[in-house]
Design a protein around this nucleic acid. Structure first.
Lengths: 232, 232
DNA sequence: GCCCTCAGGGTACTCAGTTCCTGCTCAAAA
DNA sequence: TTTTGAGCAGGAACTGAGTACCCTGAGGGC
């Protein structure tokens, strides 16, 4: 019973679709072509995929669920929030590296077809929203917590996607983990872990203060520059 | 000849579409409904808008062109790159605040209709790409220049959109510029300008000073928040 | 035997978007 | 005045994605 003699419908449809898309192009392939090649009824296609585009991203739903579960695990609340969302982003990388050939083929397709790019954007947005929601909860007590959460989530996604694209453009020939580690390290360096001082504790010694003097009209960057490195 | 007695077709279509979309919903409105209300032929709709969704974002094309021209101006190469893309992002804010009622109505619509959210994502992505391309050129000499460009562009867009959403959710009742200034100041504080600039700004009168006192360990955003609005 | 469920298939419909053609209008040329 | 040409608007017909509704057959428990 272990060797399934009937390939599951989903996989059959994905294989047929990808083959036709790469052979003759996305727009030039109709859903009828796909189901004809797969040997199933047209109705079945839309039973498994909500749209013609979604068949190109068959595993994102599962990955998104996995990310949500990962971030819901209360175990992770001990870790630094930025590290946590970095690890969550690595789940997406893992999904891509699980099937490198498929990922590279999909990358080529997506680069060329606007409809697929648009669909991918929606998927990425859902990842980013998931990360942002997590950070919002972690930053709830801080001032501008939501702003920080949105910006950091966007930065993490951008860094991850930068590394992912680099890996895909290389044809999956370089080390993806090293690429993503490097990109996410930049994010971590930008927002370093201050977790060792627990949040909002004003019990720190009050005698150690910094005084910043600035003229009115001084641009904000100059103030920040002056204080940078002295505060901590 | 100056006062046009015939309202231009574009504006007529946008008005008719928005009215029907808000009255009976986006999906429940067909293109035929729109052109019937506008009193024009169906063919004319697709002469002016490539899709049913794009009629909801009639001014983004012009804004994108404006942003591209702004960043192409060699005058701006003297400024800090992050400041420059911040100012570019403010162009988008300006487009929204030019017609607050329309923007708020569109925001409500977009929130409810997935197809419109997806279309908006594509537009935002083009802004982000434009900013990232500019930063890539500015950071070409630096190590990891492309990575930095992508991450900072994403952060700027996220901060801008955070402020924009806050303003839209308020029903355009709060000060949009203050909101965006605050959000972008966080980005500026995150990547402060460390390049020495010409001391032209230091010729301002020296008698008007601001004193900021902070404990060591205070996060930078808190300093920025405290000084915000006092410096200028 | 019967009944229930459910994955799959088929048909017909709506509507977005495209293609091709036609008609109108204005304006310069003849 | 007529003619020609360019450009905009309307309209008819077509493709194809996605949906609604209904049918079939294979199990599976009683």
């Amino acid at each position: 019973m272990t060797p399934a003699p009937k390939p599951p419908m989903r996989a059959t449809l994905v294989a047929a679709a990808l083959q036709l898309f790469t052979e003759r192009g996305f727009e030039q392939t109709t859903v009828d072509d796909i189901v004809a090649l797969a040997g199933v009824g047209r109705r079945s296609f839309f039973r498994y995929f909500p749209s013609k585009e979604s068949v190109v991203f068959p595993d994102h739903e599962g990955c998104l669920r996995q990310m949500t579960e990962f971030l819901a695990d209360p175990e992770g609340d001990a870790a630094d929030p930025v590290d946590r969302v970095n690890d969550a982003a690595r789940l997406v990388l893992r999904m891509y590296t699980n099937d490198p050939e498929f990922s590279v083929r999909r990358y080529e397709l997506t680069r060329q077809v606007p409809a697929l790019r648009s669909h991918e954007l929606s998927v990425v947005r859902r990842y980013e929203n998931t990360l942002a929601n997590y950070l919002r909860a972690r930053f709830a007590a801080r001032p501008d917590g939501r702003l920080r959460a949105d910006v950091i989530a966007a930065a993490v996604v951008a860094a991850h996607n930068h590394a992912l694209r680099t890996w895909l453009r290389s044809g999956a020939s370089i080390d993806p983990d090293a690429e993503v580690d490097h990109a996410l390290a930049y994010v971590t360096a930008t927002w370093p872990d201050r977790q060792d001082r627990e949040p909002e504790k004003d019990t720190s010694p009050a005698d150690d203060v910094v005084v910043m003097v600035a003229r009115r009209g001084t641009p904000m960057w100059r103030v920040v520059q002056g204080v940078q490195g002295v505060l901590d």
